[in-house]
């Protein structure tokens, strides 16, 4: 009888340890990503169910990525839903929304991970394949979001591997003086979207949400 009791309590302990491990992981997974805009899952683009609506504002202000608001009135680009993409790519740099480049650009980037802008970012093959697929399916080619459409139509068949080299991006950033970014040690490069775009992670690049480190709000 006593033996049985010990066995039972050991079992209980083991269960608790197991559960704690899972809970710990769940919390760890969420770290830093919780920006209040929920609604991700699998490969789908969840632009519509985030309970996040700044569409009208965008129309009025004519957002950083243009304000025509032709099709969708929420974020400028669909938020990142890919769990593996966010984990593998977003652990080193801003998880650029797939809708910021056409699929041919993503394919080029993912085929050259051995020299990924000067870094080696090689992935195990199965992860490389899965992330490439995610990026293609959610690329600007298949997105109705404003920024995606504008970037796509600005390309004219070119396949840039840098978002900062797309003509639309260049046009939108050309009036920012270099002292505010290139020569600003807190920014350094336009590649770090979220250093200035405070809602970048939510796919919103509205110029009214821009806050340049060391300079404050951007007002043109």
């Amino acid at each position: 009888m006593k033996n049985r009791k010990i066995k039972l309590s050991m079992m209980f302990f083991a269960l608790a340890v197991g559960l704690a491990a899972i809970a710990g992981q769940a919390i760890a997974d969420d770290d830093g990503d919780d920006d209040g805009y929920k609604g991700r899952g699998g490969y789908s683009q969840n632009g519509d169910d985030r309970g996040y609506n700044n569409g009208d504002d965008d129309k009025r202000r004519g957002g950083f990525f243009g304000g025509e608001n032709r099709l969708r009135g929420k974020a400028d680009v669909a938020t990142v839903a890919g769990v593996l993409y966010k984990k593998e790519c977003g652990s080193c740099h801003f998880a650029y929304q797939p809708g910021l480049l056409p699929s041919r650009s993503w394919e080029k980037i993912m085929a050259g991970l051995e020299d990924h802008f000067g870094d080696n970012a090689e992935l195990p093959e199965e992860d490389q394949v899965e992330i490439t697929r995610y990026l293609i399916v959610n690329s600007a080619d298949y997105s109705n979001y404003k920024a995606s459409i504008k970037i796509s139509s600005s390309l004219g068949g070119s396949s840039p591997v840098r978002i900062t080299e797309t003509p639309y991006f260049v046009k939108e950033h050309q009036e920012i003086p270099v002292r505010m970014w290139k020569n600003n040690p807190k920014v350094k490069s336009l590649s770090y979207c979220d250093r200035c775009h405070t809602n970048a992670k939510a796919g919103s690049f509205n110029e009214h949400d821009v806050k340049i480190p060391g300079f404050g709000k951007w007002d043109d």
């Binding site: 079992m11 083991a14 340890v17 197991g18 704690a20 491990a21 899972i22 710990g24 992981q25």
Partner: peptide, 18 residues
């Protein structure tokens, strides 16, 4: 059943942080 469940959870925990 309990042993199986417990083993399952321990195994799961280990794949996450082994």
């Amino acid at each position: 059943k309990m042993i199986i469940t417990a083993t399952f959870f321990i195994a799961l925990g280990q794949t996450l942080a082994y």
